[in-house]
Amino acid sequence: MFFSGVSLFAALGFLLYGGRLFLMLQRFPVESKGRRKKLQEVGYVTTICFSCFLIRGIMMCFNAFDKAADLDVLDHPLLNFAYYLVVEILPSSLVLFILRKLPPRRGITQYHPIR
C-alpha cells in the first residue's frame, strides 16, 4: 500500500507541476523562440509520466486489496515483462526520446587570455 501511495503522489506531482509549467509556457508571447516545441515537450512528458504513475498506483492498490490480482507473476515471464514494459521501460524510453536534443554548448568567448 505504501508503494501505491508513493506512485499516486508522484502522479499527482507530475500533473500539478507539469500542468503549471505548461500553463506558464502558454502565457509567453506568441513570437517566443521555441515556445510551441517546449509546450509539446512539457505536455508529452507530463502526460506520459502522469498516466504511467497513475496506472502503477492503481495496479498496486488492486494488488494490496485483492489477493487474486497478484502483480508478482513469476510463473508467467511474458506477463511480468508486459507489466514492467508499460509502467517503467516505455515511459522512460519515451521521455528520453522526447528530450533527446541537448541545448547548444556555449563557446569559450567569455574568457579572456591571461596576460
Rank of each mutant, 00 (worst) to 15 (best):
S4W: 02
G5F: 09
V6P: 01
L8V: 14
F9T: 02
F9N: 00
F9V: 08
A11H: 05
G13W: 11
G13D: 11
G13H: 09
F14M: 15
L16F: 10
Y17G: 13
R20H: 15
F22E: 15
F22T: 10
M24H: 15
L25H: 06
P29I: 11
E31D: 15
K33R: 08
K33L: 11
R35V: 06
R36W: 02
K37S: 07
K38S: 13
Q40Y: 12
Q40A: 15
Q40G: 04
E41L: 08
Y44A: 02
Y44G: 12
Y44R: 08
V45T: 10
V45S: 01
T46L: 04
T47H: 02
C49V: 08
C49M: 11
C49G: 05
S51M: 06
I55V: 07
I55A: 09
R56F: 08
R56S: 15
M60D: 08
C61T: 08
F62V: 09
A64F: 01
A64T: 05
K67G: 12
A69D: 15
A69H: 06
V73M: 14
L74G: 13
D75T: 04
D75M: 11
H76V: 06
H76G: 03
L78M: 05
L78P: 01
L78Y: 13
L79N: 07
N80W: 09
Y83L: 06
L85Q: 10
V86E: 01
V87F: 05
V87K: 01
E88R: 00
I89S: 00
L90H: 01
L90F: 03
L90W: 00
P91D: 01
S92I: 03
L94P: 02
V95P: 00
F97A: 00
I98K: 00
I98N: 00
L102E: 06
P104E: 06
P104C: 10
R105G: 08
R105M: 13
T109L: 14
Y111I: 12
H112D: 08
H112Q: 08
H112P: 03
I114W: 14
